[in-house]
Amino acid sequence: MKIWDAHCHLSGVPGQTPAERMAQLLSFADRLGIERLCVCMGMRWSYDPTPADMRQQNDEVLAALQHWPHRALGYVYLTPNHVAASLAELDRCVRDGPMVGVKLWVARRAHAPELDPIVERATELQAPILQHTYLKATGNLPGESTPMDLAELARRHPAATFIGAHAGGDFELGLRALRACENVSVDLCGTDPAAGMTEMAVRELGAHRVLYGSDAGGRSFASQLGKVLGADIPAAAKKLILGENLRRLLRPILQRKKSL
């Protein structure tokens, strides 16, 4: 079984350089049989990055990918608060570079029209969009998306491929909010390993729309992998979640880049 992790970061990991941090991540991934890591965002994050900051963070991911081309995949970090710069960065890192997806975090909520040109360009490039979603009882950041925001965006762009990060955080509401959006998959990462989460995701979305992700290094590969391996779902569903679904979503762009 090839386990691919749909959601990793270079933050929260020991190491002075992106390459050192990637090596650290892979050393832990190896212990759990995780073959590939999808990485996004740099070593220091910012909620609302400037174009220069965005570029630097993507440079750090590119540096990590350069050392580990057979183990790591990259999503380009973009911000709808700087659309022109984001489109240029999308071309630099995905069209002309090795990255295979887009990461949108908390600069602006996902239902905003400023996301439209980014989504349209990503769709042309066959790049899936990993959109942070988190519904917090403690209150969201001003630009932080709810799963309902992502559902609105996904309905506007039926040809685009989205991954709803963290299954909406409050997964019971998040999964219900995203259930009807067939072009949205969810990753299971970045929350406590609450028993029943994976079973509900499979029940409501279907196993073909559920992805293993860890949110490492802030989270443990193990705690998140346990959500899948400990779930009462069929073996075939686990295989889909642990890697087959992500490979299916990335197949068009990887084939175009001849790296599958």
């Binding site: 609450a194 028993a195 193990a222 705690s223 998140q224 346990g226 959500k227 391996l229 400990g230 779930a231």
Partner: peptide, 14 residues
């Protein structure tokens, strides 16, 4: 409340 396997796997990760 949590998947038992999440804690088990932490012993393997480290």
């Amino acid at each position: 409340l949590f998947y038992l396997e999440s804690a088990l796997l932490k012993l393997q990760e480290s």
